[in-house]
Design a protein around this nucleic acid. Structure first.
Lengths: 325, 325
DNA sequence: CTGAAAGCGCTTACAG
DNA sequence: CTGAAAGCGCTTACAG
């Protein structure tokens, strides 16, 4: 049975007008009355005619992530399938010229929850959304809000697995191309690299460490720097994204070096193209299907008020193809 | 100034109750009254509180198209950028188990317009949407409704270009793998193939013509059939999608034949992977950016009531890489 | 801080 | 087929 303001008023022994004021966040309501009414509203799941449940999930791409991002597109594909089965549609909030307020847009559209894909923890408008009471799930971005959680690959351990593999192959001279440090994903992979190097007693040669922005081009430029700045060349290279690895491989070949005999390369992500390219890339596979499915179920749990779900760290796996021993 | 039902009533010299009835499609209203009121509603752009403009575009994937479809993902990416600039968000309507009614979902969500991506003209729920008064743009699907238009590559001419290229290369024995005939895109490419063969005075060998469903696997199976069913093998192969071409190439290689020296292959779409694979695929490139941008502007024009925009046929271009002479 | 009451925008059973 | 009027769900200026 649909509840009205009047019902709530009766339940709480208060006038309909006062209930209306609570709903609309008027300031002239006593604190205890407000709480009492809010509880009742929540209990019966009160919704005004304009605010019926919309069954819409907001999707927000942080930073410079685009729609056709080779990693996230597969994550979101699986996410959309799972959440579609549960009756939800996906509202992709456009990035606007004037740095639009995501939170406001989500409220206008009355989304039931949000998924935030990539981007950086420092982005103002993402933080606002994170801190709001809209349930949010972050993919590769650490959300901290009370109604938020996130899913992220164990980026520190990921680095360790790569270095371990190189170590067992006998490589001691290892180079590294990281992503943007401002993104948690970037900084953690870098941290993982350094920790692993220390753990295996290897020197992280400063001239062999560069950073890009996860794009193919930036990987190319970073590798160029490494090859030109240093007198000797590394024997192995760990790159924090497959896209950057493609660029780095191009730079290596241009330099007249062979992969993997001169330099072994391991990327990170396992995007689809990595399997198809001329020389299929060895890479740290992140389980895109699992991440997408997890995100769907965690978000639904948040929406339904099962607070149990905290954040999840998923493991990664080395996929050996043709670019490392 | 916000108009109410009362204003409309005064404008048309009718009671507010009657206006309400027109708005809610009650049947007991006289035809002339109804028209008069509807005109007034339209003129002042009447919207009830529940029906303010939402600035949302519905996105519907027809048939089995998925979110990460290598061709459409780029089209939609460009579309979303353009339409995002104009202040719209994108609502991806989920495909539901019980063959949900797209039209109803679009009305509930009050989308301002729709883009329908792929799929087949015969799909019931797409037809309903097409025939509704919601502005729709079809990509690779022929919409016929009064408020609809579509964008499609010139698939007939596309076939001609491929055959012409083969012809000039001296190939006379040409095989063809088409897509689903129930999709306009599929049937037109097939038609284009046959017409071009006739035009160049070539025989379309029945055993060299197979059909898949645009997927990689179906291309593989189709090529297997062609290779096993026929005594002699063709010298050239035209495949109606890049994905099917990948499968066909695998089958050719398994058969111990070389591309392009034994069989020349040309695909269709120019998806991103085609450039990256071990043996980069020659293909008919469709201008994804242009299509995405066109779709955005045509849809906005429809929404704003500029009926001028009819459907658009875009041209394609042969991109020669390593699989044909 | 709270409620009684006027009012808004809309819908709908009913009379003609 | 049409309108006067009761009514619904909600908001809001005002009195206390």
């Amino acid at each position: 049975m649909k509840k009205t303001i009047k019902d709530i008023a009766e339940m709480t022994g208060v006038s309909p007008g006062t209930v209306s004021k609570v709903i609309n966040n008027y300031s002239d309501v006593g604190e205890s009355t407000r709480r009492k009414v809010q509880e009742a509203l929540k209990k019966v799941g009160y919704r005004t005619k304009l605010h019926t449940k919309k069954n819409i999930i907001g999707v927000i791409y942080g930073g410079k992530v685009e729609f056709n991002h080779p990693f996230f597109v597969d994550v979101i594909n699986m996410f959309s399938k799972e959440i579609g089965f549960l009756g939800y549609d996906l509202l992709f909030i456009s990035r606007l010229v004037d740095n639009k307020d995501y939170l406001q847009r989500c409220k206008e559209a009355q989304v039931d929850g949000c998924i935030i894909v990539g981007g950086e923890e420092s982005e103002q408008s993402l933080q606002e959304l994170d801190r709001s009471d809209i349930p949010c799930i972050g993919i590769d971005i650490k959300l901290k809000g009370d109604s938020s959680s996130y899913i992220m690959t164990d980026n520190i351990n990921l680095g360790k697995k790569v270095i371990e593999h190189f170590y067992l192959l006998g490589h001691r001279e290892i180079a590294y191309i990281g992503g943007r440090k401002s993104a948690m994903v970037g900084s953690e992979r870098t941290l993982g690299f350094h920790r692993a190097m220390t753990e295996f007693g290897l020197d992280a040669h400063e001239k062999w460490i560069e950073h890009g922005d996860f794009s193919e081009k930036s990987g190319y430029q970073a590798m160029k720097k490494i090859l030109f700045q240093s007198d000797n060349i590394p024997r192995a290279l760990f790159v924090a994204s497959d896209l950057m690895a493609f660029g780095a491989m191009a730079a290596i070949k241009q330099h007249g070096l062979k992969i993997p005999s001169d330099i072994a390369v391991v990327g990170c992500d396992d995007i689809e193209i990595s399997r198809y390219i001329e020389q299929p890339l060895s890479t740290m596979k992140q389980d895109k299907d699992k991440i997408g499915r997890l995100a769907a179920y965690m978000l639904i749990d948040q929406i339904n008020g099962f607070k149990g779900t905290s954040s999840v760290i998923v493991d990664s796996e080395l996929v050996i193809r043709n670019t490392c021993g």
